[in-house]
Design a protein around this nucleic acid. Structure first.
Lengths: 125, 125
DNA sequence: TTGACATATTCCTATATAGGAATATTATGG
DNA sequence: CCATAATATTCCTATATAGGAATATGTCAA
């Protein structure tokens, strides 16, 4: 099986740096024409259209017609799943190392077995 | 050009649901043998090894030898770039809609030109 | 209608999977 | 040295890109 489609979910969609760049441009919440995005990110227009299409399919942007232009607007709330997931690990970089260790050691204690922790012939890879 | 390698950065690595699942298992910070991860996620051992390999390459886990076992441990701090990026959009789902609109309108005011906002023949797509 | 502008779509290709199956590698105990 | 356990690696294949180039579609204005 190949890799999942970029349009499958937000995680796959935003894995592309260019698409994150586009989202950054739309980050202020104002709607923009494709041409404005093109100018902002300096990519060819077809590429921008394709990327916007992916972002649209996962619902992270919406589109509106305005004459011959199509105004894209960020739909930031659909990025929430990414935030929710990664927030789970927030403790690892928010200077609360003590709590992390403490929690880990607590679990270690709870786990009655595996007293084989004296095997200190560890080796970093 | 094909899609970027999954080992290119954390964004690509965690786009895979199975890999996020594995990270969730390691989420408590305790090190685990591959077999423990295998049992926890219910995937074939070779798949787990491959996924762990990807996670290792992007630095989001570390590995340590212990006899014939390899103990993997979460290196959560390497998920920070994802958090940092998505946090930029936090405003969109944290009940502060008023501020968002206000900010957008402020920028609208700052932007002197484009007084062509009376074109209200918009159409959802 | 016609031309110009804005955007989307189609074609093409090199590349990188993810999963399954089988096998290789490494370590341990006796 | 050998069987076994734990893990990694190799082979294979269907699939899905991302980007470039060219073109199609849609809209407006005169």
């Amino acid at each position: 099986m190949a890799r999942a489609a970029t349009t499958l979910d937000v995680f796959n969609a935003v894995a592309e740096p260019r698409r994150r760049e586009i989202l950054d441009v739309l980050g202020d919440g104002r709607e923009r024409a494709v041409s404005e995005v093109v100018e902002a990110v300096g990519m060819p227009q077809p590429s921008v259209s394709k990327h916007l299409s992916v972002l649209l399919k996962v619902g992270v942007v919406t589109v509106t017609r305005n004459g011959q232009m199509r105004m894209y607007r960020l739909n930031g709330s659909n990025l929430k799943p990414v935030h929710d997931w990664v927030k789970t690990f927030e403790q690892y970089w928010s200077h609360q190392i003590d709590r992390i260790k403490e929690r880990a050691e607590q679990k270690m204690r709870d786990h009655k077995k595996q007293a084989d922790n004296q095997a200190d012939n560890k080796e970093e890879v």
